[in-house]
Simulated scan of single mutants.
Amino acid sequence: MGNEVITVPELPEVETVKRTLNTLVKGKKIERVTVSLPRIIQRPAEPEMFCDALTGHTIQEVERRGKFLLVRLDGLVMVSHLRMEGRYGVYVSDEPIEKHTHVIFHFDDGTELRYKDVRQFGTMHLFSPGEEKTQAPLQKLGIEPLSEDFTVESLAAKLRKRRSFIKPVLLNQHIIVGLGNIYVDEALFRSKIHPLTPADSLQADQLARLHEAIIFTLKQAVDAGGSSIKSYVNGQGEMGMFQHQLQVYGQEGKPCVRCGQLIEKSVVGGRGTHTCPSCQGRR
């Protein structure tokens, strides 16, 4: 079996995939590309144009923007979203091609980067350098929570006019990128904020705690290689370990690590939500 990347698409997992792919494919030259599921290719319109454009180019760096991977080549940028079941793996060319393999990047060293997607929801877009910032799917993305631009002040500005509950606001990728269900629950618990709190009602002390909690939670998760909820492993076949540090997500019925009250599960904005009824009491 080749080195494979399986992910659930939150920032820590995508960051881990990015780092792993850099060790596996950076510097490799594409000899040809084959596409067996055309709808994966969103730009250009014809998969044949996608394949032709990439032929002869070398992968220089793999980056991340929110939950998207950016594969930078010499003169091109490929933007890839894995959705829920997208997987990248590097294989020797004579290894059997597994079911649900939809795109193969054939390298001139006899190896291949294969993209598999059981649900077939993943996407790939191809741009000239710089163009990806002004076009879909990246042009409307919000602030990066691990960047220098993410300050208490910028967070307050993002939330000031949002009357919706804080949880769905944090999940909105047009406001803050990369946060999914797991890490929003964890950050709200750490900051002692109830997920049904209106975003525009947060006070200065709550904003400061939330800002710190988002950064702390994401950094801890990245350091742990992400969370292996469902089937996530990195490119070396190693599980992410942050699931062993989860304090509230998936802990319903267990005592809170702070106060001992039993963790409850509810639905907020259509998402399963985990809270401590004592530590996160609503104002």
Rank of each mutant, 00 (worst) to 15 (best):
G2N: 06
G2V: 03
V5S: 08
V8R: 08
P9L: 14
E13P: 03
V14Q: 03
E15V: 00
T16G: 09
T23F: 02
K26E: 13
K26V: 09
G27V: 06
K28I: 00
T34G: 04
V35M: 01
S36Y: 02
S36H: 00
I40G: 00
I41D: 01
R43C: 05
R43G: 07
A45Y: 13
E48N: 13
F50R: 03
G56V: 01
H57S: 00
I59S: 00
E61C: 00
V62P: 05
E63N: 13
F68C: 06
F68V: 04
F68E: 06
L73F: 10
G75S: 04
G75L: 05
V77E: 03
V77Q: 01
M78H: 04
V79A: 01
V79M: 01
H81C: 09
L82N: 10
M84S: 04
G86E: 07
G86H: 11
R87V: 02
R87Q: 15
Y88R: 08
Y88D: 05
V92Q: 10
S93K: 13
S93Q: 11
S93M: 04
D94Y: 14
D94H: 14
E95A: 12
E98K: 15
H100D: 00
H100M: 03
H102L: 10
F105L: 14
H106C: 03
H106M: 05
G110D: 08
G110P: 06
R114E: 15
K116I: 02
D117E: 11
D117W: 03
V118R: 06
G122F: 08
K133G: 00
P137C: 07
K140L: 08
E144Q: 08
P145Y: 07
L146T: 00
D149A: 15
V152R: 12
E153H: 12
E153F: 02
K161C: 04
R162L: 12
S164W: 05
S164F: 05
K167P: 01
K167C: 01
V169F: 04
N172Q: 02
H174G: 06
H174M: 02
I175K: 01
I176C: 10
L179H: 12
N181P: 05
I182Y: 10
I182C: 10
V184N: 09
A187M: 05
A187K: 13
L188N: 12
L188T: 11
S191I: 00
K192M: 07
P195R: 13
P195D: 10
L196R: 13
P198K: 13
A199M: 09
D200S: 15
S201C: 07
L202E: 11
L202A: 08
Q203Y: 04
Q206L: 11
L207G: 08
R209C: 06
L210K: 08
I214Q: 05
I214C: 04
I215Q: 11
L218H: 01
V222Q: 04
G226T: 07
S231T: 12
V233Y: 10
N234P: 08
E238Q: 15
H244P: 05
L246G: 11
V248E: 12
G250D: 12
K254S: 12
L262R: 15
I263K: 09
E264G: 07
S266I: 14
G269M: 11
H274A: 12
C276S: 05
Q280P: 15
G281Y: 07
R283S: 15
